[in-house]
Structures are given as C-alpha cells and as structure tokens.
Amino acid sequence: MSAQLLTQIGAAATHFRLGEISMASEVMIAVVDGIQAYLTADGDPDNARAFMPALEMIVDAQQRGDFLLVADLLDYEVGPLVNATIGSQGPKSA
C-alpha cells in the first residue's frame, strides 16, 4: 500500500510542477483517499495527528492556487510521513 501511495504522491507533485493541474487534481483524489483509508484502518490518533498539519496546509494551498507549494508539501512533508508511518508499520488492522 505504501509503495502505491508514494507513487501517487510523487505523480501528483510531478504533475503540479509541470503545470498539469487537471492531471494533478485527479491523482490528488487517489492520494487523499489512500491516506484516509490508511488512517481509518490504523486507528492510531497519534498517526492521524501527524498527518493533519501537512494535509491542512495542502488544502489551503490548493484553494488559493499555490500549486508548487502543494507539490513541495507532497514531496517533502507527506511523502516522508508516509514512509515513516505506513512504510515502517503498515496499518494495524491489515
């Protein structure tokens, strides 16, 4: 799961950096769904709290069209978090 999610995160960031907003937005739906699915299955509030600041910043940045910041947050904040939490542990209920 983490490998697929990391691929999607990288793809969304790449599309944003290339200016391909439509494609980026489509991939972002899969990214958000993937993170939510993990956090729901995981059930650990500490993990949920770890993701929250970056996800809130992404929502804000997307709303105001700051897409290169969205790409940065995906590459340098969310990606490493996925690696650190999902990658090392996997969902507890999985």
């Binding site: 105001r64 069209g65 290169l68 910041l69 790409a71 940065d72 590459d75 340098y76």
Partner: peptide, 9 residues
C-alpha cells in the same frame, strides 16, 4: 498568495 518556484529544491 503563491510561490513562484519550489521552496525546497
């Protein structure tokens, strides 16, 4: 309200 480039790399 937007960054003109990456602010990481």
């Amino acid at each position: 309200e937007i960054n003109i480039t990456s602010c990481y790399d």
